[in-house]
Design a binder for these strands. Structure first.
Lengths: 154, 154
DNA sequence: TGTGAAAAATCTGTAAT
DNA sequence: ATTACAGATTTTTCACA
C-alpha cells in the first residue's frame, strides 16, 4: 500500500521513467532529496517497487512473434504444478492462472512460427497440457503505466 | 537488430536491472567504460532500448484485479480504429491486435470487480465493441526477460 | 520523518593513441 | 576501441532538528 500523495508521485514518476533522479523526484514530490531517497528505499523494501527494467523492443532482439497461450491440463484430477514446470522454458514472459476455460494464460515471445511450434510442444510435454494460442499481429501499446485509483492521470 | 555478443550482454543486463551502471556493463561485456557508453546510446537511438521503467506491484498501488479483455467490433464492415479510441481509457495497460475470433486483446488493471464492470462499459461505448473478459486469479510471473535466440540463458 | 551539507560514486564529454 | 582526464551530476552518508 502507498502511504500518501508523496509516495504516489514518486511511484508515478518511476513508472514513467525508472531512471528519474532523486533530484527530480524531490521536485515532483516537494520533499527534500534525502527524504525522497528514504521513501524510495522503503518502497523497494516494502515490495511496492519490485525492480527496474530496461524496456526492449522484442523485434530488435530477434523475438518478433508474440502470442497468448491458454493452457489446460489433460488430467484435471491430478495436482497441478504447471507454473513451476513452465518457469524454466525459454520464451515465456508471463504466466497467470485465470478464471475461464483454461487454467493458465501465458504470454510468449519467439523468433518465428517454427519456434512457436517448438515452444508449444515443450509446454505440452513439460506440463501435460492442452494449449490454445492466439497470435499477436500488432502491438499498439504495452506496459503502459496505469494510473492508480485517486491518482490524477496527467 | 543487435550487432554482436556485446550488445546482447548489455541488453540482457539492462533488462534484468535497468539501473545497471556503465561500470558494471563494462565488466559483463568486457568492453571499456567509454565504449559501453557509446553502445548504450546507440541501442537507445536505434530503438532497441525504448525506455526504463520501475516495476511496481499492482496490488500495492490499488489495482489488485487484472484481466484480459478480448475486443470485437459490432460492425466489422466499418473502419476500425479501436486502439485509438481505447488509448486514453484508464486501466488499459496493453493493447494488441490478434489473430483469432477477437480483433484485439487488452490487458487491464483495475481496483475491483465493480471497476472492471465500469471499464468494460467504457470500452464498449468508446469503441462500439463486444468484450469477452478473462479474469486473472494469480500472477506467477510477469515481464520476465526472455532470452533472445542464440543468447545463453544464464 | 524530515533537512542540509559533505563525501563518494557515476556519468558525460573530450582528447590522444 | 582503449585509456586518461576533467567537470557536472547523482548517490550516499552523516549530523542534526
Amino acid at each position: 500500500m502507498l502511504d500518501d500523495e508523496v509516495d504516489r508521485a514518486i511511484v508515478r514518476a518511476l513508472r514513467e521513467d525508472g531512471r528519474t533522479t532523486l533530484a527530480q523526484l524531490s521536485e515532483v514530490s516537494g520533499l527534500s532529496l534525502s527524504a525522497v531517497q528514504v521513501r524510495v528505499r522503503k518502497l523497494e523494501a516494502r515490495g511496492v517497487i519490485t525492480g527496474y527494467r530496461a524496456v526492449v523492443d522484442p523485434e530488435s532482439v530477434g523475438l518478433p512473434l508474440t502470442a497468448f497461450v491458454e493452457v489446460t491440463p489433460f488430467d484435471q484430477s491430478q495436482e497441478d504444478d504447471s507454473p513451476e514446470r513452465l518457469r524454466d522454458l525459454p520464451g515465456i514472459e508471463a504466466c497467470y492462472s485465470v478464471a475461464g476455460n483454461a487454467n493458465y494464460m501465458l504470454l510468449v515471445r519467439v523468433a518465428s512460427p517454427r519456434a512457436l511450434e517448438e515452444l508449444l510442444g515443450q509446454i505440452r510435454r513439460a506440463a501435460s497440457v492442452y494449449t490454445r494460442s492466439t497470435v499477436v499481429l500488432q502491438t499498439y501499446f504495452e506496459g503502459r503505466p496505469v494510473a492508480a485509483p485517486g491518482d490524477p492521470d496527467k
